[in-house]
Design a protein around this nucleic acid. Sequence first.
DNA 1: GAAGTGCAGATTGTCGACAATTGACAATCA
DNA 2: TGATTGTCAATTGTCGACAATCTGCACTTC
Lengths: 233, 233
Amino acid sequence: MSAPLENIARIKVRSLAALIEAEVERMIMGGEIAPGDRVNENQLAVRFGTSRGPIREALRSLEAGGLVELKPNRGVFVRSISLQEACDIYAVRAALFGLAGRLCAKRLISGQVAELEVLVRDMEQAAAAKDFDSYYPLNLKLHDFIMEHSGNPVLASHYRDLVKMLHLFRARSLVQGGGLAISNSEHREMVDAISSKDGERAHRAHFAHVMRARERLTHSQEIQSDIKTKKVS
Amino acid sequence: MSAPLENIARIKVRSLAALIEAEVERMIMGGEIAPGDRVNENQLAVRFGTSRGPIREALRSLEAGGLVELKPNRGVFVRSISLQEACDIYAVRAALFGLAGRLCAKRLISGQVAELEVLVRDMEQAAAAKDFDSYYPLNLKLHDFIMEHSGNPVLASHYRDLVKMLHLFRARSLVQGGGLAISNSEHREMVDAISSKDGERAHRAHFAHVMRARERLTHSQEIQSDIKTKKVS
DNA sequence: GAAGTGCAGATTGTCGACAATTGACAATCA
DNA sequence: TGATTGTCAATTGTCGACAATCTGCACTTC
């Protein structure tokens, strides 16, 4: 009985570098450090009350994960994601989400499908009430549910990384875009496909859902571009 | 004219940590440090003639990239990939390769398709001669060509990471498995699909190709398992 | 006024030292 | 003899100091 307690104690011990990494990531994801900003080692060391060593270690991890980029002798900068890169990310995300849909169609049992049905229904109500604040967390929940229940941790991990990268892009985007009703009819098709246990159909529905989000992104950026042009002239 | 030169000089400057990271990755990929082995900071510091600081930084990068895992106060170990994880990786790889096929079908021009045709023909010859030493590099070349010409650097990067992970698994696998002729008929279908400019067909062909490699892997592991059982009894 | 040069301060990169943790081995106890 | 405890060496985690690099500003020259 003591072995589980020892393992738990071990899991809880984390180095300063790991703690700092998590905190800096939070600061970046939350917008406190914006894309393009430099991450100053000395300031972080003062802020966290540590030496620069663990700071540097944490930043190397964040760099390998793609959140920041290191320019030798000049510092570490939060990465900026261009529209092109965001589109590329969406395409990869669509492929992974499509696979998740395929896998869920093959492995979800009826109780789990029922959970998805509930989510879609709740989202339909939120959409009808034009209640974006309720809709958005449900949307996240649906996506997370599908990824976690795909049964493939490698898939879920890669997908999470991509979503994280997209946060760097969204930090600059003021237009949220996309109609709730359209998006939720796509969710309905996704869940129906999973329920039908047809892997191909589920793959198509999930892939298409993310690709349409990609198109909406491209479209909204074009609108923004047009608006800017008109203001100048 | 001097600005481009300065930029090139900047690109070339790399920290000790970056150099060490690349070297340790080479040692892992080449099998010099095997899955499960501990990576000793002091030994590396002696070997590279540096202090432990940059070693630690390099190892944090490698950890974030998934090649090694850090156990606080106990050291850094090269990761072992289980059969289950290898299967998961293959599935994700199939999804990404399928997307690459789809994108290539839409964007490759005839000269590029012709290059693929040459590769497939050369592989057919190597397969007919049962010349695995010639076949394997051509196989790599075909896969790399498709990924690089997908036009999506995010996709290519994720794919490369997955292939890198699979090296950790292969370092333990003695059976290479799979018939050359079968594999190359799949390559033929892939290239034909790209040539036909049918994205859906190309996606199916590329996805199926990697999924069959996944099946061959599972099958060969089952055979190994059977052999071991028979030896014991 | 524009261009070039030099310098100082800020910051990054690396080093070696000290502190903390772990695992292996030896000694002790029941 | 097996279980428990203590010790020590190896290794990891962190610190602060020194060296190197870069940028911005002031001064000089044309």
